[in-house]
């Protein structure tokens, strides 16, 4: 899974991810109204979401299962409508979380995807968004905490077909211990998507001696009238910031806590869900 739209040097082992996972029977849900799903069993679920023209729908999935599970979301966002999908991983599990999301967005439609991964289990997430309509938009926000020998394998592909479409992919995370993260983010501007803008941003705080941090932010472009950008800042704690915080009476550990919480804080504020916030803070408390 997590195949890149274009291949690059094979020795990097980034073109696709090998995943051993035996999918079981798939429970299928068709939804046209907002839903909050407590994902507490090791099962595979496919959710087909349809947001009618001019309507809004939100889907909140809180993972609390114990072993491994696979979630698949297929969404269609109608004209002038909005879909928000929130995935929060609060599972005290030993296995894998596999999340596949494929959404197409019509004229003036908006798709927002928030993913919070503070838990200990491996995560494979694949998010494919087709911005088909004029003025359609995709906003992806992700925060993760990688620790132990955890694997985080992330793939985002935003394809711009519609004129004046917008995409913004933002991923922040912390890597500790022996955690391994691979972030693949692609913005693909197709001919005809004039006036479109796409942006990718990645911030990674490296806190472990054995971490592996891999990133490949890709822009593909066959349209002249677009603006695309990506930026990444990857490193350890900023010395100057640390000194500043210490001069204000905080210890190094306090400063580290603040930064890790800060990685999740913006998205937690945005989703404004007390239960998920509490569970996420509890997960973070294990390391901070």
């Amino acid at each position: 899974m997590n195949r890149m739209p274009v291949r690059t040097f094979n020795r990097l082992k980034m073109n696709e991810s090998r995943l051993e996972y035996a999918q079981g029977d798939v429970r299928e849900l068709n939804i046209e109204e907002s839903l909050r799903l407590d994902y507490n069993r090791d099962e595979d679920i496919r959710i087909n979401v349809k947001v009618r023209d001019g309507e809004e729908l939100s889907l909140i999935v809180n993972f609390t299962f114990k072993g491994s599970a696979g979630l698949e979301i297929n969404g269609k966002v109608g004209r002038g409508s909005a879909l928000t999908v929130i995935e929060a991983d609060n599972a005290a599990r030993t296995g894998k979380l596999i999340s596949r999301v494929h959404v197409s967005v019509s004229d003036e439609g908006d798709f927002k995807h928030i993913q919070l991964y503070p838990a200990r289990g491996d995560v494979y997430t694949d998010c494919i968004v087709d911005l088909e309509g004029k003025g359609s938009s995709f906003d992806a926000g992700m925060a993760y905490l990688g620790r132990g020998g955890q694997i985080l394998d992330i793939n985002h592909v935003a394809t711009h077909y519609g004129k004046k479409s917008r995409s913004h992919i933002h991923a922040d995370g912390v890597l500790m211990d022996r955690a391994s993260k691979l972030f693949k983010g692609t913005i693909d501007f197709k001919t005809g998507c004039a006036g479109s803008k796409g942006q990718e941003q990645e911030k990674v705080l490296l806190l472990g001696d054995e971490i592996i941090n891999r990133s490949i932010p890709v822009i593909l472009c066959t349209e002249e009238d677009v603006e695309g950008s990506h930026g990444a800042a990857i490193g350890s704690m900023d010395e100057e910031m640390l000194l500043y915080l210490q001069s204000r009476g905080l210890s190094e550990d306090d400063a580290r806590r603040m930064v890790i919480k800060g990685m999740f804080g913006r998205l937690l504020d945005e989703i404004n869900d007390e239960e998920i916030s509490e569970m996420t803070v509890k997960q973070l408390a294990e390391v901070v």
Partner: peptide
């Protein structure tokens, strides 16, 4: 990009295995 018949792709890969490395990356197309 000087026209829409052409194509421009950026495919930068990074593999960082040292915690006190300092890496910055930026790309723009337009």
């Amino acid at each position: 990009m000087l026209d829409s018949e052409s194509r421009s792709d950026t495919i930068p890969a990074m593999d960082i295995r040292c915690a006190d490395a300092d890496v910055g990356h930026e790309a723009q197309i337009g």
